[in-house]
Design a protein around this nucleic acid. Structure first.
Lengths: 143, 143
DNA sequence: ATTGATATTGAGATTCAGTATCAAATAGGA
DNA sequence: TCCTATTTGATACTGAATCTCAATATCAAT
């Protein structure tokens, strides 16, 4: 089932309506395939001479998170950064506090431990976020 | 070296000035010993008939983070939640998306893996945050 | 295809956490 | 005490995210 079908079935299951705005945004996001925020999406929309309002972008992003198609990835400069939930394993982030560089990594052992901890607390995990802040190898060697 | 001394030496080392506001806030935070945000601090200040401005609270919190005395713990309802960096090992959080309940946990294996990953990427970690979102055991059993 | 009930959208106003500004107050060395 | 740099408080400002509400679109039933 591809993402468009996932969206359609999520919409149907929740008594919502299939709209062009919702599928248009999903398409834009799929093409980006990486991290993005609301400003980036709005810029892309403007450049392509499409018409989607800021409010609809925010609303649709919430919807897509609910459908599991995208994730709130992290906060950067006060903005929420999202990413498309691809099939590849969940990954986490290192953020360089000097240059803002984002490094992705994934560690199956950490994932496994998280699941065990949730089990121990009888907690049903719906999402998780691991952010490591520090100084990247390039910045470390500067001055 | 207790936290007040840590603050004093941090202030001296950075050519800053020792002020009553800074030590007052540190004392308030130590007494709280748990999670807190700016509004909570301001409320406590008001109730005790103390006088510290909102701007100074924000400024001092940044200072205390820099001195390693407190941590930015997580985001809750758009507000930054801090916590006092006690001697106990670093801990992470589970947040119930239904009731907002915060569950603390710590896992030395996860910590260890994080360090290894940083080493692999030649990344100098200055802090990290792990947030697991989901549904707590109490909410799970409610309708 | 038309209707009607309901959900969605766009434009702009609003909210609110956090930041910037700047004059007055304070710290602390000389 | 004096001098200079830092800090503080009051308040204006910023900007991401949300709210409002009239206009529009969806879709099931006719």
């Amino acid at each position: 089932m591809d993402s468009s079908e996932v969206l359609t079935s999520f919409i149907k299951k929740n008594g919502l309506k299939k709209t062009s705005v919702r599928h248009l945004l999903l398409d834009l996001i799929k093409k980006k395939s990486g991290h993005f925020d609301v400003e980036e999406l709005l810029l892309g929309i403007k450049q392509k001479n499409l018409k989607v309002s800021r409010a609809s972008v925010y609303r649709t992003l919430h919807l897509l998170v609910g459908a599991g198609l995208i994730n709130e990835s992290l906060q950067r400069d006060g903005r929420t950064v999202y990413e498309y939930s691809s099939e590849k394993t969940h990954h986490d982030h290192m953020i360089c506090v000097k240059c803002g560089k984002l490094i992705e990594f994934s560690d199956s052992l950490i994932e496994k431990h998280q699941k065990e901890i949730c089990k121990k607390h009888k907690f049903v995990m719906t999402g998780h976020k691991l952010e490591i802040k520090g100084i990247c190898s390039l910045c470390k060697n500067k001055v």
